[in-house]
Design a protein around this nucleic acid. Structure first.
Lengths: 196, 196
DNA sequence: TTGTAAAACTAATGCTTATTAGTTTTTTGT
DNA sequence: ACAAAAAACTAATAAGCATTAGTTTTACAA
């Protein structure tokens, strides 16, 4: 019998996690099979269970790794001594960078979270909702400080988060534009609009 | 043997299509089972096949119905004798309305298209790509006419389409804000920005 | 080199799936 | 009322799924 404790073996587990993120992005969580994942890793399917707890656990780790990264950066910005506009800009840029640098994981967290099992599903949604509320608070601060127009902060946050999320399309057919130019253009569009 | 030609029976098939859109949105295409769909419709699973060709066909019809609606409206705007800014605004408002009025189908077309089978998958992507290109053309026209700032039209279209798409979150936890206010706020944000 | 733990393997389990076949009930047109 | 078509049903098929059990190979420490 081969019962293994998760031990210090980080290396192989990390490979599995990374391949899982790619596979889940490409085929979706439900359509992706452990057989396929095993093939990507270079092993038979049952061997995966020497390193991981199961398919669901893979999704959980991807989703919360991403969620924690965003939450953590928001903590940072809230301690910044900068204008509201500057802090919102930092957050937008962080989202863009996360999308470009950790594409597979962010994509999976954005698209496949609904296949999380309880209580992880609830926890994820609570964390996400909390993040949005804090972001709305930042927008409200900016409006009160007259840095932003008198607009609905919920709609503004919705618009910003969604726009940034859409970078998944850019990733799919990479355009002839540098990621720096992309970042600046999108930040400008979201903060200053496009009409003259 | 019960071989049925798809005939004029629109009514029951429409019910199946509508329930399928809801189910595919809620559980995702792969996780949704024909048993569940049958239960939602009020029959046993095999009975569905008297009305439809199969699970894949349901997805195809949802995706192309949505895609054709957008393409069709773009045709309309291209024949309008209005400014570029006004036409872009019309399109943004149409996207918002589609999202609010045909939520399930638009959501499924946006999220589950990757489970289309060939050649439908390729056709869908070609149609979508064509739509984006025409929209970019509109932005370029607006820039040339000095109605829009000198910005990257691809990034602008990406930002606009993604922002509008994010209304799926608004649908999920409907806020205390009228859809008209939402529409106006988002259009303003995307066209004029939020900073003063 | 030898003992031990880690990690691979094969085989099997039990469940779910979409779909087809064949039959029966319901609806519809005359 | 009667015949034909439509649409429901039950039962069965064949494939795929995640996961477990049990065994064997590999890697490493002494």
């Amino acid at each position: 019998m081969a019962k293994i404790k998760p031990g210090k073996n980080a290396s192989k587990k990390d490979v599995i996690n990374q391949k899982a993120a790619v596979l889940f992005r490409e085929k979706g969580f439900s359509s992706a099979s452990m057989r396929e994942l095993a093939e990507a890793v270079g092993v038979e399917a049952p061997s995966l269970y020497n390193h991981i707890g199961g398919k669901s656990e893979l999704l959980q780790e991807i989703c919360f790794k991403v969620a924690n990264a965003f939450t953590s950066y928001l903590d940072t910005t809230e301690n910044m001594e900068e204008s509201f506009a500057a802090r919102v800009e930092h957050i937008i840029r962080f989202h863009i960078r996360m999308m470009l640098d950790h594409f597979d994981e962010v994509y999976v967290a954005n698209h496949e979270w609904k296949h999380l099992k309880e209580p992880y599903l609830s926890n994820f949604l609570i964390q996400r909702r909390g993040y949005e509320k804090r972001l709305i608070g930042l927008l409200e601060g900016g409006i009160a400080a007259k840095e932003f127009k008198q607009t609905n902060p919920y709609v503004a946050v919705l618009t910003i988060l969604s726009a940034v999320r859409g970078l998944e399309f850019w990733q799919q057919h990479k355009k002839n534009i540098s990621s720096r130019e992309l970042e600046d253009d999108m930040v400008n569009h979201l903060l200053k609009g496009i009409t003259k």
